[in-house]
Each structure stands twice: as structure tokens, then as C-alpha cells.
């Protein structure tokens, strides 16, 4: 079976964009809603190139270009995108006009850019890449759906059209209006939960190890328990071949009903393995789990875990453990559970 490596990974988020400043100097926020820190796009794009693009498209295109350049892969064998809400800013503009002004004189650009696959197809158009191209839009597991697709195709050695390199992206923007709507739902309905953030992550996966390889992806598993009990969950998870990791990167977000599920499941399934967090500095968004993978990958690459990823109250010493294997565990609404095992 092929090995699968992350050979380059970049982010734009609430932390400094395109760099790893968060490792030494994380920015902590106390507001409930934080937009991503935008890079200076003028450095990267001509104005005409991006004149029609909303925020999500600029971010996606930039991180994609950067990982392609860094990994030296100009034409990946697959471009696979995960996005919970797609281009919600364009969707909102079109919808708002439609509802308020009626069904005339609507701008085609906003509609054209409202579909979720705008992001992935734009990257293909930018790179003239005719390869496999797909988009997953499944709320809190959109990124894992995309990663699973890439992982599965790259593992297949019998395919006629082999996939050896894949550009996997995870993108969500959060507009002020949509944040206000989501505050009325359980997703962002709690005071003091991790801030609502934005995600733009691109990673280049390859079956070939490179000089700059960041880490290896050992496993990608996802399960759905729409109706099941925790017992069923535990019997299923024990079938997964996930050997004991050094750390578990969990998606805790200071919402007790979410966090307790992580704590309970980890205590039963992986007792005594220290837990790490990332949403304290990157915030919550549908594709935030991609930032969890990003953080874990950088920790593996450096062989160190920064102190601020420690979950407050946990008792381990960061320096006690080796940093060879990190399991990223995410659940959304306790229905979808996903596991991504990374190794050095």
C-alpha cells in the first residue's frame, strides 16, 4: 500500500496568515467572532485577476498556489475541496436582494459564485488543471470527507488513472450576518464558547516523500452515529486500527456538551493519552478540523508541542512525551466522528 505524506500545508485564519507565528506567539482573542487576518493580496495577485472574488476565493486561491509552489506540484492528480457553507458571502448577497427587492435585476456574478464548487473549480481554472475535481459540503466534516476521498484514491494501486498527488483544501468564511443567524442555533448558541472563526487551509498530499515532507497520514476514518448509542460507537471504534498515539488533538471549543464527548470518549478509548486543543487560538468553523491537522502536522515536523495547545487543567508535562504520532479526533454534534492519524 502506498504511503501518503503531507508535503506542504498553509493556512489563513485568525492567526498570522501563511506563517507559523502561532507556534511561538499565538494571538488570543476574547471576542466571540473573529475574521481571518488577510495577507496583503496585492503582493500576490493583480487587481484584475481577483476583481470578482470574495474573501473565501482569494484565500483559497492563495493558499493553493503557495502549497503547489512549495511542493513543486504544478498539476496535482486531484483537487478536492471541503467547505461547510461554500461561498456564503455571495449566497447571502444574492438571497438578500432576491428577498428584499424581488425577482428582477439580480446580478449573475453573485449566483455564479454561490455554488460550493466555485472554490475548487477556480483553482483548476487558475492552474489549467484537468484532473479529478470534487467538492464536499457536509457541515462539520466537510474537510474529512475531502481528505477521505484523496486518501482512498491515493491508496488504490490498481487504478488506471492513478492519483499520486492531491491538493486538498478546506475553506469556510463567516460573514457577520451568518454569524448572527448561527448564534440562534446550537452551533454558536453558547456564551463563552470558542470564537467563531474562519478557515482557509490547503495541503499537498503525495505518495512520494520529499525533502520538505511535513508528516505522514496513517489513517483517515469517519463514522456516523445518527441514531446510535455510545456503546455502539465504542465497539466500532475499537475495530479501527489506530495504534496508541502520543497525543490526541481534539476539537474542544469550551462548550460543555461538545467537550464532554471528547473527554469521555478519549478516556475510554485512549486512556492516559494527553489531549491537545487548537480551537482556543484558531476558533470554531465547519472546516476547523483542517486547522487541527495543520497544527498537528507542524508539531510533528518540529518534534515539539507548544504549551498553549495544552488543555487547561490537564496534568501531563508537555516534555514527557515523544512527538511521533498525533491522532486528530473531531466530532460534529456527536453524530459524525472522524479520526485522522498523523505520524512523523
Amino acid at each position: 500500500m502506498n504511503n501518503i505524506y503531507i508535503n506542504s500545508i498553509k493556512q489563513i485564519s485568525a492567526q498570522q496568515p501563511l506563517v507559523e507565528d502561532w507556534f511561538e506567539q499565538p494571538i488570543f482573542y476574547s471576542e466571540p467572532y473573529i475574521r481571518a487576518i488577510e495577507p496583503d493580496y496585492k503582493q500576490f495577485f493583480t487587481p484584475n485577476e481577483v476583481r470578482r472574488f470574495g474573501k473565501i476565493l482569494k484565500r483559497a486561491l492563495l493558499v493553493a498556489r503557495q502549497v503547489m509552489a512549495e511542493s513543486g506540484v504544478a498539476l496535482p492528480d486531484a483537487i478536492i475541496t471541503g467547505t461547510g457553507l461554500g461561498c456564503i458571502e455571495s449566497t447571502e448577497i444574492f438571497l438578500d436582494k432576491l428577498v428584499r427587492d424581488g425577482e428582477e435585476l439580480l446580478n449573475p456574478t453573485h449566483f455564479m459564485q454561490s455554488t460550493h464548487n466555485t472554490i475548487g473549480s477556480l483553482i483548476a481554472i487558475d492552474t489549467k488543471c484537468h484532473s479529478y475535481n470534487s467538492t464536499y459540503a457536509h457541515n462539520g466534516i466537510s474537510f474529512e470527507c475531502a481528505l477521505q476521498d484523496a486518501f482512498m484514491q491515493m491508496k488504490r494501486e490498481d487504478a488506471i488513472n492513478r492519483v499520486s498527488t492531491a491538493l486538498v483544501g478546506a475553506h469556510d468564511e463567516m460573514t457577520p450576518t451568518y454569524f448572527n443567524l448561527l448564534k440562534k442555533t446550537p452551533y454558536f448558541g453558547k456564551l463563552n464558547q470558542a470564537f467563531a472563526g474562519e478557515t482557509a487551509v490547503a495541503m499537498m498530499l503525495s505518495t512520494e516523500k520529499a525533502e520538505k515532507t511535513i508528516c505522514k497520514i496513517e489513517a483517515v476514518e469517519k463514522m456516523y452515529f445518527g441514531h446510535e448509542t455510545i456503546d455502539k460507537f465504542q465497539s466500532q471504534i475499537s475495530n479501527l486500527k489506530i495504534s496508541n498515539p502520543d497525543y490526541i488533538m481534539v476539537g474542544t471549543n469550551d462548550k460543555p456538551e461538545t467537550d464532554n464527548i471528547y473527554l469521555e470518549n478519549c478516556a475510554k478509548l485512549f486512556p492516559n493519552i494527553p489531549l491537545l486543543q487548537y480551537k482556543n487560538i484558531f476558533g470554531e468553523s465547519y472546516t476547523a478540523p483542517a486547522l487541527g491537522v495543520y497544527v498537528a502536522a507542524i508539531c510533528l515536523q518540529r518534534g515539539v508541542i507548544p504549551e498553549h495547545l495544552k488543555i487547561s487543567g490537564s496534568e501531563f508535562q508537555i516534555s514527557d512525551n515523544s512527538v511521533n504520532k498525533i491522532l486528530c479526533y473531531n466530532h460534529f454534534d456527536n453524530k459524525n466522528h472522524t479520526f485522522i492519524l498523523l505520524s512523523r
Partner: peptide, 17 residues
């Protein structure tokens, strides 16, 4: 100017508006 078919549609909206 290098406009394309989508711009043409936007111009049609502009003409009416």
C-alpha cells in the same frame, strides 16, 4: 478591457437598472 460573458450579463443588468 478584457471582459467576458459574465461581465456582459452584468452590463445587461446595468442597462436595465
Amino acid at each position: 478591457l478584457g471582459l467576458d460573458s459574465i461581465d456582459a450579463l452584468e452590463l445587461i443588468v446595468l442597462m436595465e437598472k
